Amino acid sequence: MEFRQLQLFVAVAEELHFGRAASRIGMAQPPFSQQIRRLEAELGVTLLTRTSRRVALTAAGARLLEEARSLLARRVDVITSIQRAAHGETGTLRVGFAASSAFGVLPAIVSRYRERFPHVTLELDDRESLNVGAALVGGELDVAILRAPFRHPGVTTERLLSEPFALALPSAHPRAEQRAITLSTLANEPFVLFPRHSAPGLHDTVTSMCLAAGFSPRVVQEASSWPSVIGLVEAGMGLTLAPTSAQALKPRGVVFRPLRGAHGQAELTLAYPGPQPSPAAARFRALAHEAVARTRAH
């Protein structure tokens, strides 16, 4: 039994006239009638009673009409589902991100993606950068947003965003009123940073900036998320260098000041396994760049 035979049967079952049904399908009546007889022979039942005056459905024909309509509708649904999956419009997209990138554009990207592709299940996975490469190559993740630099065999990366660092310090700090602060003057200040195992790219960039300014940062406390880092700064534990987008956290007791004499950028990287992203990951990538462009425009 073929889908084409079912289509022909539904036509004659609805028209109850072989000539009109054949015309509706776009076939000559003799081969149309032959297909119906072949279907009856394959099923071993009589689907239609035929007289010179009328065509009627048998009990088996009435049941097949019901089932055939369901099968044909299901066939369309399956084809549509397959095509949508091929275009990245259904299924599951597993997105990895480091805690150091969990603010700024990430919420905007996720919000836009969910709005644009509501039939894709978005799974967000917050893990350490050192594990993301293996997760991408191993098929646990489809795409990731990380702090640069990031490299891993078998993983393609591309720059998503580059922004300057700002100094975050308690609002009660003696230097909080300064409009801009020279990095080299912070040599004796205590710092709060991400631990290197959690955000190696960010940690190394901040450390390199301080070394270029003539000192090694005196790290008194570490924390693995930006709310925690900024919370420690607000508590007076120390200062930190943060991407300017960290100001989106809007902490009450912390001020952000531009840096003078600082050479370094906070970069976000988009990463995916292989030379090309999957269809769903490709759509996520496009929306990610779109969200970054909108952020810069505002």
Rank of each mutant, 00 (worst) to 15 (best):
Q5V: 00
L6D: 09
L8H: 13
L8W: 12
F9H: 08
A11H: 04
V12M: 11
A13W: 02
H17P: 06
H17N: 15
R20P: 05
A22R: 02
A22G: 06
R24A: 15
R24S: 14
M27P: 03
M27K: 10
Q29R: 14
Q29N: 10
G44P: 08
V45A: 11
S52M: 01
A56D: 03
L57S: 01
A59M: 02
A62N: 09
A62S: 13
L64E: 03
E66N: 06
E66R: 03
R69Y: 06
S70Y: 08
S70N: 12
L71I: 12
A73S: 15
R74G: 08
V76Y: 10
T80L: 15
S81Y: 10
S81D: 14
S81L: 11
Q83R: 15
Q83N: 13
R84E: 15
A85R: 15
A86H: 14
A86V: 10
H87F: 07
H87L: 12
G91M: 10
L93W: 04
S101W: 02
G104T: 00
G104I: 00
V105Y: 07
V105W: 04
P107T: 13
Y113T: 14
R116W: 10
R116P: 05
H119C: 11
V120Q: 12
T121L: 13
E123L: 15
G133I: 11
G139V: 15
G139R: 12
L141N: 07
D142I: 12
D142L: 04
D142W: 05
V143M: 04
P149I: 00
V155Y: 01
T156M: 05
T156G: 06
T157Y: 02
L160I: 00
L161A: 09
F165Y: 13
P170H: 04
H173V: 04
P174M: 06
R175Q: 12
A176M: 07
A180Y: 07
I181P: 01
S184G: 07
T185N: 12
L186C: 06
P190W: 10
P190A: 14
F194I: 09
R196W: 00
R196H: 11
R196Q: 11
H197A: 14
H203T: 08
D204K: 02
T205F: 02
V206T: 07
T207M: 11
G214T: 03
V219P: 04
Q221S: 13
E222D: 08
E222I: 10
S224K: 11
W226E: 14
S228V: 09
V229M: 02
G231H: 04
A235D: 12
G236A: 01
T244M: 14
T244N: 09
S245W: 02
A246M: 10
L249T: 02
P258T: 01
H263G: 12
E267M: 11
A271N: 07
Q276K: 15
Q276R: 15
P277N: 10
F284E: 11
R285C: 10
A288H: 07
